[in-house]
Design a protein around this nucleic acid. Structure first.
Length: 280
DNA sequence: CCAGACGTTGTT
DNA sequence: GTCTGG
DNA sequence: CCAGACGTTGTT
DNA sequence: GTCTGG
């Protein structure tokens, strides 16, 4: 394999491991309030206001999502101005809400299907029964500050942190993974869940995996989340890999391996010798 | 028609 | 709910 | 994704 | 080895 897009030390330690689900851990340290501000979202669900920064989010856990609201008129531009609402979603009624990672279709007999719907391939999202209705009418974005992937070299597994460079600032910052959601009525009440869409990888991600999460361009947020948008072909076209130049990756320590560890140390760059061996 | 599945990934 | 298999 | 469990009985 | 929990 030719490794062109990772820095040489990173390229040297990546191996061929292409048999895992995609994007199964991620990091969101930006607060929902700031996400709302950056995205131009007017509504924040009360339950999400107590969200604390997370550095190691795993499937099955409560997460943050942004979704379009049906039957709510957008505020007129004047009111938008007075409310200080700007950003890519200022013209679309949206809310920042919470949902569990692992989509449970509304018709499911039990919630066990949720362990297999962490990701949804864009190639089949509009045809497969579990995902089709959500793809057509219940699209969302899942804000993140980074995600993790594991790469195996000579039997040794190394976690990588992967970030996305903001077009505004030129530095890694919050980004939006494309998702779909549903609401399932369970014995203990309603459960809202989501799945992260995946697509074919760009050249950087291809060194690590054969899939990558769909990361939306800011100018596409509103079209993606508009519940009245029925242009399936157009929606599908939005779900393509972002440019590799907009991604950064570095190895991190084994701390992140356990979902019980959830601290800023999970992000800390590790040397390629990490974990240290007896003889360095 | 009913019954049963319904997902991701890749299968080194 | 919606599709496939029988 | 990784870590960790992986059984029986029956149930204040 | 395989499944669940996080």
């Amino acid at each position: 394999m030719v490794l062109r897009n990772l820095p040489p030390p990173l390229a040297a330690m990546t191996g061929s491991g292409f048999n895992r689900p995609m994007c199964c851990r991620y990091h969101l340290s930006t607060s929902p309030v700031l996400i709302a501000e950056l995205f131009g979202v007017a509504t924040i669900a009360p339950a999400i206001r107590s969200w604390l920064p997370r550095y190691n989010i795993a499937p099955g856990q409560a997460c943050v999502m942004v979704r379009g609201l049906s039957g709510v008129a957008p505020p007129p531009p004047g009111l938008r101005q007075r409310g200080g609402l700007s950003g890519p979603l200022a013209s679309l009624p949206c809310e920042v809400a919470t949902a569990r990672w692992g989509l449970i279709p509304r018709w499911a007999a039990d919630e066990t299907i949720g362990v297999r719907t962490i990701n949804a391939g864009i190639e089949t999202a509009d045809s497969t029964p579990s995902l089709r209705e959500s793809f057509r009418t219940r699209r969302c974005v899942v804000p993140a500050d980074g995600f993790y992937e594991w790469t195996t070299t000579g039997g040794r597994k190394t976690p990588l942190w992967i970030g996305v460079v903001s077009e505004q600032t030129g530095t890694p910052g919050p980004f939006a993974m494309a998702g779909i959601w549903d609401r399932w009525e369970g014995p203990a009440g309603a459960v809202e869940t989501f799945s992260v869409l995946t697509c074919a990888p760009n050249s950087l991600m291809a060194e690590i995996h054969d899939r990558m999460p769909v990361i939306l361009a800011r100018e596409d947020y509103a079209a993606w989340m508009d519940p009245s948008n029925t242009d399936v072909a157009g929606l599908t076209r939005l779900c393509r890999a972002i440019a590799p130049e907009r991604m950064v990756a570095h190895p991190v320590g084994a701390l992140v391996n356990s979902p019980r560890h959830d601290s800023p140390r999970c992000l800390e760059p590790a040397s390629q010798m990490d974990p240290p061996t007896l003889f360095g």
